[in-house]
Design a protein around this nucleic acid. Structure first.
Length: 470
DNA sequence: CTAGCATTGGA
DNA sequence: CCAATGCTA
């Protein structure tokens, strides 16, 4: 019947999906999803992300059913089984072509290269589409022909070279004639080491994502710049889980911004343009993993920082993971992560800086812990953020820039509302002292004293980075 | 509140 | 020469 397979990965939507639209324009479509639980867990994804992934596939299956597109579901343990699995499906259904949207981390690129060669040598045509980014990595380069390694010039080039076509939306295809192929039932998520958090705050699927985008832009987008740094305020979009699994495209976000902002992205409302900038950060890190694939192999972007003498401190790491460092904002943030599967962006910087600078613990341990708990865990953004905080990454954060967790607390949680929500044992401490409780208040609050002294820890981190220069 | 810290990429 | 999600004195 000459069907075309569309392999869904982290693009779990029917609207504005490049591969789906391109395939459907050429013939009947059969959708495929390959669940790679062993590989994903090896990559560090935890129960929250895997649960959201599964719910997203279920939502996609329903959306596809409305278009008469069957969804075939296969479990493969690892990426290297993908070519064989796809080839078997293609042969079973007489498919002539495979379409998918490109993914950029190294393991995913290798998987896709193997799929392309495997299927092409079997006589199928394979189409890898640009979808998750406005520019294919490599399209935006410096005057020297290098990948950008600093965000600001990257973002300027992104705006300068953008044209309307790159953000044009593609409608979901019209319903196709029914095929003699049934959708597979979806298997449940097997028992994992951790249980997923209650997912009701994060309904999966493209319609939930669209609702959230609309509400964000209607009520909060214009306040984004001024409110995004206050964790007690829901000033951010909370769209990251949807972007990570492609339940929403960056184009849908940017088109919606333009609709609110007189057709502009770079100028206009300062709140909206600040949010656009954050979307460009996501694309920046997608380009980084292609331009500097070592970051996908547990290595630092700044190669000289590989020599840094990270501390071996199990007790410190455990205290950080469990939210009992004695720094209330850090602890509240870590408890938010573990209890809710999500952490406010400002706090990701604060906690990452605390682990890597105050505790001088290897950023890779924090990166992995985040990925295990985050419902929005995504390699490029997570790695980029961690390396930024650790001063091993892009954008040359001067190594002497070390967040003072108490200053961050008084500035971004002035009433200690966020601290009090997640560290309720401090409720008995006067609000002004909740940022850094003094010792005589701690006993009654059953809250630990700081595990490190800020001044001493800062000096230790500065020394460790200075030593790299010698 | 301002200056000093003192790195780095990129136009 | 500017910019970078800052801190300390």
């Amino acid at each position: 019947m000459n069907a075309r397979l569309v392999w869904f990965r982290s693009d779990l939507r029917t609207h504005d999906n490049t591969a789906l639209s391109e395939a459907a324009a050429q013939g009947p479509v059969i959708a495929v999803f390959l669940r790679c639980l062993e590989q994903w867990q090896q990559h560090g994804h935890g129960a929250n992300k895997l649960d959201f992934w599964g719910r997203g596939v279920a939502a996609l299956r329903e959306d596809l059913a409305g278009l008469n597109i069957p969804l075939l579901h296969r479990d493969i343990d690892r990426f290297d089984a993908a070519p064989e699995a796809l080839l078997a499906i293609a042969r079973e259904h007489g498919a002539c072509a495979l379409h998918f949207n490109a993914e950029y981390p190294l393991d995913e690129q290798r998987r896709d290269a193997a799929v392309i060669s495997g299927l092409e040598s079997a006589g199928l045509t394979v189409h890898a589409h640009r979808d998750a980014v406005a520019f294919t990595p490599g399209e935006l380069l410096t005057g020297q022909g290098d990948y950008y390694s600093v965000f600001t010039p990257f973002a300027k080039a992104w705006h300068r070279q953008l044209d309307g076509n790159r953000l044009a939306l593609r409608n979901a295809p019209a319903p196709q004639p029914r095929l003699p192929v049934d959708s597979d039932p979806l298997p449940p998520l097997p028992r994992l080491d951790d249980s997923p958090i209650d997912g009701r705050h994060w309904p999966a699927g493209q319609s939930a994502a669209a609702d959230r985008l609309e509400r964000f832009l209607r009520y909060r987008g214009r306040h984004y710049r001024d409110q995004r740094d206050f964790p007690a305020v829901r000033g951010t979009s909370e769209l990251s889980p949807y972007l990570a699994l492609g339940m929403m495209s960056h184009r849908q976000c940017l088109q919606a911004v333009m609709g609110e902002n007189g057709g502009q992205l770079a100028d206009g409302d300062a709140g909206l343009t600040a949010w656009v900038s954050e979307l460009i950060w996501r694309e920046f890190y997608q380009h980084i993993v292609v331009g500097f694939p070592r970051v996908c192999q547990h290595r630092a972007f700044q190669q000289h920082t590989e020599a840094l003498a990270w501390r071996d401190d199990e007790a410190g790491f455990t205290a950080w993971c469990e939210g009992r460092t004695g720094y209330p904002l850090v602890d509240a943030a870590m408890r938010q992560l573990v209890q809710t599967g999500w952490m406010h962006n400002r706090l990701r910087m604060v906690t990452a800086m605390f682990l890597t600078k105050h505790l001088l613990i290897d950023w890779r341990r924090g990166e992995r812990f985040f990925l295990r708990h985050l419902i929005d865990g995504e390699f490029a953004a997570n790695n980029g953020g961690w390396q930024w905080a650790a001063s091993t990454g892009t954008d040359a954060a001067p190594y002497f820039r070390i967040f003072n967790p108490t200053t961050q607390s008084t500035r971004f949680d002035p009433q200690a509302d966020f601290i009090t929500e997640f560290v309720p044992e401090l409720s008995s401490v006067p609000v002004k002292k909740r940022h850094a409780p003094v010792s005589d208040l701690l006993d009654s609050a059953a809250y630990p004293p700081p595990i490190v002294d800020h001044r001493a820890a800062r000096a230790r981190a500065l020394d460790a980075f200075k030593a790299l220069k010698d």
